[in-house]
Amino acid sequence: MSKEQCLIRAIVPKEKIGFTGWIFEGYEHVGLVSTIDSRAGEILIRTTSDLYEQAEKILQNLPFQIEIL
C-alpha cells in the first residue's frame, strides 16, 4: 500500500493466512497481520515507517506465492 501509511495489503493463498500471521509473530514488533478477506486471501499488515521495508522483505521471502497490492 504505502510506506507513509505504514500499511501493506497483500494476497496470500487463503490456507496460508494463519501461517503468515505466525511468521510475523515470530518477528516480534515488525508488523501485525489482519485478515481483510479470508476467501480471497487478502491480508493487511500494520507496521511502522522504520520497519516497513523489513516487513516487505519478510513477505517477499515467504515460501509461497504472494502479491503485494
Rank of each mutant, 00 (worst) to 15 (best):
M1W: 06
M1L: 07
S2M: 07
S2Q: 02
S2V: 03
E4I: 03
E4R: 08
Q5N: 12
C6Q: 15
C6H: 11
C6I: 03
L7W: 00
L7M: 03
I8R: 02
I8A: 08
I8E: 09
I8K: 02
R9D: 12
R9G: 05
R9I: 04
A10S: 10
A10N: 01
A10R: 00
A10P: 00
V12W: 06
V12P: 07
V12E: 01
P13S: 05
K14W: 06
E15L: 04
K16P: 02
I17M: 14
I17H: 03
G18L: 12
G18V: 08
G18W: 08
G18F: 03
G18P: 10
F19Q: 07
T20P: 01
T20A: 02
T20W: 01
G21K: 09
I23S: 09
F24Q: 07
F24A: 04
E25D: 15
E25G: 11
E25M: 10
E25R: 15
E28Y: 13
H29P: 01
V30L: 14
G31S: 08
L32H: 14
L32W: 05
L32K: 15
V33S: 04
V33P: 05
I36N: 01
I36R: 09
S38N: 14
S38R: 15
R39L: 12
A40G: 07
A40I: 13
A40L: 14
A40T: 12
A40W: 01
A40E: 14
A40Q: 14
G41E: 09
G41W: 05
G41K: 00
G41F: 02
E42H: 04
L44N: 03
I45R: 04
R46S: 15
T47R: 13
T47E: 11
T48K: 03
T48R: 08
S49M: 01
S49V: 01
D50H: 03
D50M: 02
D50I: 02
L51H: 00
Y52I: 09
E53Q: 10
Q54S: 04
A55I: 01
A55L: 12
A55N: 05
E56W: 04
K57I: 02
K57P: 01
I58M: 05
I58E: 02
L59R: 07
L59D: 00
L59K: 03
Q60E: 15
Q60F: 01
Q60R: 15
N61L: 08
N61T: 13
N61R: 11
N61Y: 04
N61E: 11
L62T: 05
L62N: 02
P63C: 10
P63N: 13
P63A: 13
F64V: 12
Q65M: 04
Q65L: 12
Q65V: 06
I66F: 04
I66P: 06
E67I: 14
E67T: 14
I68T: 07
I68A: 09
I68Y: 06
L69M: 12
L69W: 11
